[in-house]
């Protein structure tokens, strides 16, 4: 049955050239969202470190853990859906690159009015002075790109070990 679906899908590719209605209707990959996505596999030596956020699979969101992006774009008539998603991804990559090797947690992005608050846990591997430099740099550069006030809300830990919740 699967193959026949694929065939139909391929046919719809051809169709899609004529009519955009057929372009994005079919899903040909198997539905794995409940089984593997957002979950970590156990290693043989049981030495993969997980943070609390990683240790809880997606269905625990809003029960044991919370969202990584906070905004209203997914509400009914919410604005800037795709823009928000792309910007959030951009912010995450920017933070991970700028604070290279220092980010110990997920980057949480909260939007309130025209204000973006970015929270993360950093390692104390560089001096506070350098941290302040990076803080000012990140806030200013992100706010010029996204064109709204951006605030970083960081916490620091001594080492990555401090955020490890368990090993699997």
């Amino acid at each position: 049955m699967n193959t026949s679906i694929i065939k139909i899908a391929q046919a719809s590719n051809a169709l899609s050239q004529f009519s955009p209605v057929f372009a994005s209707q079919f899903h040909t990959s198997s539905a794995l969202c409940r089984v593997v996505s957002g979950k970590y596999r156990i290693t043989k030596k049981r030495d993969r470190p997980l943070t609390y956020e990683m240790a809880n699979p997606p269905h625990y969101i809003a029960h044991r853990k919370s969202w990584n992006s906070w905004n209203t774009s997914s509400l009914k008539d919410g604005l800037r859906k795709s823009e928000t998603a792309v910007e959030d991804e951009f912010i995450r990559r920017f933070i991970n690159g700028t604070w290279h090797g220092l980010v110990c947690s997920e980057v949480i992005i909260k939007r309130q009015f025209n204000h973006i608050r970015i929270a993360a846990i950093m390692r104390r591997a560089v001096s506070p002075t350098k941290m302040y430099f990076l803080l000012g740099y990140t806030e200013e550069l992100l706010s010029t790109w996204i064109q709204c006030p951006v605030t970083l809300e960081l916490q620091t830990v001594d080492s990555y070990e401090d955020v490890v919740f368990k090993y699997i």
């Binding site: 302040y132 803080l135 806030e139 200013e140």
Partner: peptide
């Protein structure tokens, strides 16, 4: 010393970003 250093470091970072911009 630290009060001064930290505040000015943050501003230096902001200046660096403005320079890039």
């Amino acid at each position: 010393f630290r009060k001064r250093a930290y505040a000015l470091s943050a501003e230096a970072g902001r200046k660096a970003a403005a320079w890039i911009r």
